[in-house]
């Protein structure tokens, strides 16, 4: 069996949005501890990892199940959530559906078809990073928006104790400099100068579920995948994005 009650459907919607920006389908592995999912996007450029401990739920009860769903369909259903709705997720093993129930002014039920999405057994690779930056999501997303004006990729740099978001197009350039004492920065754990370049659209998608005051943990090296972690509605979201390199 699997049944979970989430007090704010709108918050859970952000988790589904974050995944659906990058993935077509996902397998939620549920057990008595909580829900987890790991998947790479079809091009293997990005990885999404979702962990929701049972404590994040108002009620939670589960045995071991793999629940594979089409994310576009799930997202469309979650878009129907009203501001004060509670969300109930329950597995209907007989009908092979995931019931998605909104409880608010009325009780609205959707039955979402299950897909045979095999659980990936993917692990987030245990990469050692020289730099770890804790930054407010708002200013970081703004820096990405600035970069978006000049090119479709962006360079994230650690240089002389500063975190820099830099983009260069054929004609124009943009640069946002975060110093350690800037109010956007919570903390910087700097080991060495580093620089990696990334596709901007992926980075935008990965940060979409974060509210501007949420705190992103960014792990950065040179020509290494960037790792971005944050929490939404008690769920831990981790994203990994492969770099572009000069060849």
């Amino acid at each position: 069996m699997f049944r979970a009650v989430i007090s704010e459907a709108k918050e859970f919607k952000k988790v589904i949005d974050a995944a659906s920006n990058l993935l077509d389908e996902i397998c939620f592995e549920v057990n008595e501890e909580g829900i987890k999912a790991r998947a790479m996007d079809p091009s293997h450029v990005a990885l999404v990892s979702i962990d929701i401990p049972k404590e994040a739920f108002e009620e939670y009860e589960a045995d071991v199940h793999d629940i594979g769903v089409d994310l576009e369909a799930f997202k469309k259903i979650m878009n129907r959530a009203k501001a004060k709705d509670k969300l109930i997720l329950e597995l209907d093993e007989e009908k092979n559906k995931l019931n998605v129930i909104f409880k608010g002014a009325a009780t609205r039920k959707f039955a979402l078809a299950l897909y045979d999405v095999s659980s990936s057994n993917l692990q987030v690779p245990d990469i050692e990073y020289p730099n770890e930056i804790l930054i407010k999501a708002g200013p970081f997303v703004d820096a990405l928006k600035d970069a978006d004006l000049v090119n479709d990729h962006v360079t994230l740099k650690v240089e002389d104790g500063k975190f820099i978001v830099y983009a260069k197009g054929d004609l124009n350039e943009s640069e946002t400099i975060f110093e350690e004492d800037s109010e956007s920065i919570i903390s910087m754990n700097i080991g060495e100068n580093a620089k990696s370049t990334f596709n901007l659209e992926y980075l935008r998608d990965m940060t979409k579920a974060a509210s501007s005051s949420d705190i992103l943990k960014i792990y950065l090296g040179t020509d290494m995948p960037v790792k971005i972690e944050y929490d939404v509605a008690g769920a831990n979201l981790t994203f990994l994005l492969a770099p572009r390199i000069e060849s």
């Binding site: 990885l47 690779p125 995948p225 572009r244 390199i245 060849s247």
Partner: peptide, 12 residues
């Protein structure tokens, strides 16, 4: 010329 890597290279 820039090349987009995949994550597979880092899963070793």
């Amino acid at each position: 010329k820039a090349k987009q890597l995949t994550l597979d290279a880092f899963f070793k």
